[in-house]
Design a protein around this nucleic acid. Sequence first.
DNA 1: CTGGTTACTTAACTGACTTAATTACTTGAT
DNA 2: ATCAAGTAATTAAGTCAGTTAAGTAACCAG
Lengths: 157, 157
Amino acid sequence: MVDEIVLLLPVLGRELGRPVPLEMEACVKAGAPAHAFPSDAHVSPGHIQVLIALAKGPCSVGHIAHTLGVSRPATTQLVDRLVEHGMIERRHDPADRRVVLVDYAPGMHEVARRIMDVRRRQLNEALDRLTDEEAGAFFKGLKEITAALGRVPGEEN
Amino acid sequence: MVDEIVLLLPVLGRELGRPVPLEMEACVKAGAPAHAFPSDAHVSPGHIQVLIALAKGPCSVGHIAHTLGVSRPATTQLVDRLVEHGMIERRHDPADRRVVLVDYAPGMHEVARRIMDVRRRQLNEALDRLTDEEAGAFFKGLKEITAALGRVPGEEN
DNA sequence: CTGGTTACTTAACTGACTTAATTACTTGAT
DNA sequence: ATCAAGTAATTAAGTCAGTTAAGTAACCAG
């Protein structure tokens, strides 16, 4: 089984990395300014992750980077794109003007929720084929493996 | 939970995509010709997938591409790199000279096994924290989700 | 107010994929 | 026999998400 998992995981990774053009439609349907989404705009998983991370409230760039497991510059790019599309806004933290707080643009909270729903639905479709226990076990395994891969295997700390 | 999974999956994908320089050492230790692995050679998950796919015997490029879920040109590149490193060999299928059969280079079967072991060990470390039932459920969920993401969510066929 | 640190951005580059076009071979119809 | 169509692999060119390194602005301790 281990071999099959090792074979399957990267496939999942690639499949996951493909942009999801459909979600853009959802934006427009949900009332987003249509001009903000030019015909070829595509939303990558990273962008969705940013939107999800923001659901709990405004967030600094550094914090988002940590949540996503990517570098700060990469996060800056993700935020750039979403700002271009009018989904989110940057503003300075009044308490510490170095940090840039990222938050939904006014009225975009609902739109963001719908974009997330598209991906959620896709996932639910798969999870529905699992029992509750299986889903729980899957989640647990997912966390363990993500954690295990975060470390270089030789290091023990 | 769904949200957390949507947030976690791309992290896993990225973590998974990072090259694993350690495995090169394993090659050399296992007796691979050291010169075949220059200091900066790194083995990507795709390369390991090819090695795993070959474990069942020689394979055409097209078949490997299908197994990995990538295009044939991408597979050609992966094979190129592994041939450069002397891990595998190309030869023509005598039955149909269009197809290129890929197989381990002589004596590299064992080396390949060790490279795979490095990644396997990493995964086992995580799976050991799960019961057998949980591991089974994880595997099942993994397959379901990979399948679900392979389709565009709107299409029903 | 000066030197050091932190948060973010910019710039330049890399690697892994994609599609489109090419080459080499097979197959089946005339 | 040979020609047209189709398939396997490759080459070529371009894209995109990530990286590191360097730059800018703001905080803070002496």
